[in-house]
Design a protein around this nucleic acid. Structure first.
Lengths: 233, 233
DNA sequence: GGAATGATTCGGCCCGCGCCGAAGCATGGC
DNA sequence: GCCATGCTTCGGCGCGGGCCGAATCATTCC
């Protein structure tokens, strides 16, 4: 009777059936891409253990991986997988009456604006990248990122020491995948320079004990006037 | 970072992650109730081992049990569980694009027409959904599914007790993703009602020991005349 | 009553796999 | 060249859980 490919079903089930892997998958359910290290931390296990789990899930086709520098970003391989996880969560929710953890204050802050290494990420970081792209200051359409000739003047006018930034060995202007927005923000020397400048102008300031940053009242007007960004919501 | 209750997800996953249990669950996917012994046989294990598995799945809320004489009948506890299994099968089908193993007769039958919990799936199920959508009986374009005003009359005319179907608590008309066709067929009360009616009319009949169904000669003409479906291939 | 059948509980074997420490690559920054 | 960081591979430990044999309970039939 009905043999079908229940074996495959069991394989998929057992992949999800490990607490660490389930934790990772849940963390990835919103479609964001996370690094192997972040996922290890999410699951509460060491990086080497996580690496094995991730490899398994990738081989099985549940995850896809994208290399970016020395980081490896993992995400669910398709909306189909997300849908499956969703339906499994539905069953979980039915089985256990009620228990939803609301998004914490810190989650919300991080999603809004935060530093990513030395540059800006989150809603603010992506908005900044969009604004500069719209003004033809930067161009992310190609493989890497580049600053236009006019853009160089614009950034210099905003107070960035372009000569100094260009001297360094690191990537000059690079798109970086944003984990909360799933879109690119500005990394590299230019990204770091922009963040530095915004801190110097006190348009943004760090939130204590967190990577999150907040926009100051001065920053609100400044960002609006200079970049057309309205970081209100 | 996003802890949620992934533990529950892992529990559900690991329940499904055992080959024997996956086999049982797959056998139950047509919504019928099977005895413990039948399920043991399906999974290829001894009754005492099966008993343990069934108890676990029952405790977890995946199965419900009904005593009848010295037999114990198990079935999936809800359409929600069936939907979850269905969506997992979708992922399985996507993951294995090419058949390693040649398609068996049974696979072909299942792909053609089968019951999915209590409604129809497979080529026939999808064709039925398409036909009813083309005739503006149902509308799957929105978020969920809905039956049009004219559609209600059409279905009533076909012999469905619409008042009774509307009275129930379950979803009335819902699209369900088909694992073999990767398109939607009709689930919910309307889907179940349609399948029941087709069985009553003897337009379709179950293939022994399988979720697969076959279209009878009477069904062939009936489906053609009523819905414009030609289940020939 | 006794025998047969379906299903469960108990006990013990054993394999699979998740885990981490240590070491090995790769990339980036200096 | 160096070191730091992120990730992977390898090896071995240990536990959880699936498996069956034997015994027990429940139901039906004679």
């Amino acid at each position: 009777m009905t043999t079908v490919n229940a074996l495959n079903l069991a394989e998929v089930g057992s992949l999800i059936g490990d607490p660490a892997r389930a934790q990772m998958l849940t963390a990835l359910m919103d479609g964001r891409a996370l690094t192997a290290g972040e996922l290890a931390w999410c699951a509460g296990i060491t990086p080497q253990t996580a690496s094995g789990h991730l490899a398994k899930m990738q081989t099985a086709g549940l995850l896809t991986m994208e290399k970016q520098g020395r980081h490896r970003y993992f995400r669910l391989s398709s909306p189909t997988v997300a849908g499956m996880l969703e339906s499994m969560h539905v069953v979980c929710a039915v089985d256990t009456p009620k228990r939803i953890r609301p998004e914490t204050r810190m989650d919300a802050d991080l999603r809004q604006a935060r530093t990513c290494y030395d540059h800006l990420a989150g809603v603010l970081g992506v908005a900044l990248a969009d604004a500069l792209a719209a003004r033809s200051v930067i161009d992310f359409s190609g493989d890497g990122g580049l600053v236009t000739v006019g853009g160089r003047d614009f950034l210099a006018g905003f107070g960035l020491d372009m000569a100094k930034l260009e001297k360094g060995k690191r990537h000059f202007c690079r798109p970086c995948l944003d984990w909360s927005e799933r879109r690119h923000h500005i990394a590299g020397a230019v990204g770091a320079g922009l963040a530095d400048r915004l801190f110097d102008l006190q348009w943004i300031e760090r939130i204590k004990d967190s990577r999150a940053v907040r926009v100051t009242p001065a920053g609100r007007t400044g960002l609006k006037e200079t970049f057309g960004i309205d970081p209100s919501a």
